[in-house]
Design a protein around this nucleic acid. Structure first.
Lengths: 335, 335
DNA sequence: CATCGTTGGTACAACGTTGTAAACCCCAGG
DNA sequence: CCTGGGGTTTACAACGTTGTACCAACGATG
């Protein structure tokens, strides 16, 4: 593969002159510029980014740390981050943590090797000190809530308000036994959504029943199905379910259908994330729809600014969301 | 961030001795080794991979080129490739092409910049010459079929046989008007699956009806829904549909339900890819299930061998698949 | 004609790492 | 005492790029 040296030899100029042409330096004699450009074409020169970055002190890489790509929310988000990063000439390195604290710690630890300019991290189980100890000096932007407050840039929606809106919607349909699926021992977003759920119930004057709050250690379809099975075994089963993500809701819909329940007539269901999948379900899924493109774009932009000037106070950006009302809480269902 | 030089200064030895310790060179005096290791700890040294790779001529990166992450099949595959690559100490760079020829050309072209050791490419619209011209000398493994035969390593299932098996299954249910959705002007896999569809019909003595073969320029849910709407507008609509991927099938199921058709009683539906989503649909989706883990693992391994020895004859590896029979072709449905 | 500023070009060093080769030390053997 | 040969360490160059400093040529100015 051709290097600057090869091009220079062919064009009969110095290496630096070729470098100047490549980088658009103004003062090059037309004659030389022509010769260099010709040589560039015939050799098919492409800059060695590794060397360039070594020299420039930047790597051109950005890490995107997330639990797993099979979860549609993260797949969609990753796609959008890829696009946003492209605009800033960043290559994206995706790392899966499998959502475990060990996985997340290991990933963060392997980050500190000069090969990335910064990281966008979507944590699930991380604790505060993990960041400080394991990724020292690396610019980091955090997606969503996390349990402990850290001086890091952060992007996400207002989960409390979003959950409130979802539950208020169920209340407005006349539902009184509204369950929640997705409580979690240490996930920050889960705590926020639970808080919104509770405050909305309280605001509506509905009682808080512990048996209607189901824990989910994972947020996959099967966990939603399992949780719904337990809720339906209650002496007084719920007439509405608020799920902390769409996958849980899909599992809920499946279980409800298997038990012969009609949605929304017997049980109304609301999800969270607005995965494409939910719109094609039968019934289609009412869901909290965060503006994922805004999240991706904002995260990349925050990271860019953090990389440029490290000594800025950390920012906390809230991106918009809306409630997407569909059949699973609608007036009539196809089911 | 600490460099070898810093560590060397602290330990009172030369840079090379530190390098030797870091790389496990045998002949270092115990006294010096101890001092260096101590200095490594106190400085928190981490090698600059950019520089190391520049020197070694390897980058430690691998590109995964695919149409889009929002398509569950690619998200699942990407997750598995990430895992497989980790075992070989490769970082994975994901590039989205959006499935267009221009996108794929641009991506391949941007690859030739020394920053990756090789690429795993899942092409949709690429033509033969694009590879040769745009990614010269870069080790490439191709996923799935593509139109033109090229001397490149390739991994995939036998799409013809897989499609045959799917259609045979529909025939065995007594269906006679079996439609196919997903024909495509230049996608290699589409051509193969169409061939399997045709040969299975022929083997069963069923007529080939052109109006039952629906083209889909994209393989998203909405395309399946649209194609199904057209098929149902036929004077004699199909009693079974074979979709070239699960997303199309999900769209088909949705449209069928909206028209009040029962699946599988009125129309049986088979998909392709075995996305997790399909198992939770109502009815759950019968589908061709390729062994994605095997595909990912094989692709990474082929690439490793190609990088190590470039002058091997290209290999074509076929990975296993099975037909996953579920409710959408089963005896009874919940719908 | 000397001086100056501008334009165009080059040599060199440096980014952090590792391979090569040479130097150093020490001890055994002649 | 010298020599040889191992173990141990180091200086140097190189990977491909770009910033800095410097040099050369030129026309304009005094």
């Amino acid at each position: 593969m051709a290097t600057l040296k090869d091009v220079a030899a062919l064009a009969g100029v110095s290496v630096k002159t070729v470098s100047n042409v490549v980088n658009g330096y103004a003062f090059v004699r037309p004659e030389n510029r022509r010769r260099v450009e010709e040589a560039l074409l015939t050799t098919g020169y492409r800059p060695n980014l590794g060397a360039r970055n070594l020299r420039r002190g930047r790597t051109g890489f950005l890490a995107l740390v997330l639990p797993e790509l099979v979860v549609p929310y993260f797949a969609e988000l990753a796609g959008l981050v890829l696009q946003a990063a492209q605009a800033h000439e960043w290559n994206v390195l995706i790392e899966q943590t499998r959502g475990t604290r060990e996985g997340e710690r290991a990933t963060l630890a392997s980050l500190g090797t000069h090969l990335i300019d910064g990281a966008i991290v979507s944590p699930e189980a991380l604790e505060a000190r993990d960041f400080g100890e394991l990724a020292p000096g690396i610019p980091v932007v955090v997606l969503g809530e996390h349990s402990v407050d850290l001086p890091l840039d952060r992007v996400g929606i207002d989960n409390v308000r979003a959950a409130e809106e979802a539950v208020r919607h169920l209340v407005s349909l006349g539902r009184t036994r509204i369950a929640a699926i997705g409580a979690h021992p240490y996930r920050g977003t889960a705590a926020q959504r639970l808080r919104g759920y509770r405050s909305a119930l309280a605001a509506a004057g509905l009682p808080l029943r512990d048996e209607l709050v189901a824990t989910a250690l994972n947020y996959h379809r099967r966990d939603g199905a399992a949780a719904m099975a337990e809720l339906l075994a209650l002496p007084e089963p719920p007439d509405a379910v608020f799920c902390f993500n769409d996958l849980l809701a899909v599992g809920v819909l499946r279980t409800a259908a298997e038990r012969g329940l009609r949605v929304p007539e017997d049980v109304a269901v609301v999800g969270f994330d607005n995965n494409e999948e939910g719109g094609y379900n039968r019934p289609s899924l009412t869901t909290v729809a965060p503006d994922k493109a805004a999240i991706a774009h904002t995260a990349v932009d925050l990271l860019r600014r953090r990389v440029e000037t490290a000594d800025r106070p950390p920012e906390r950006v809230q991106t918009p969301f809306r409630l997407e009302v569909r059949e699973s809480t609608g007036p009539a269902s196809g089911g």
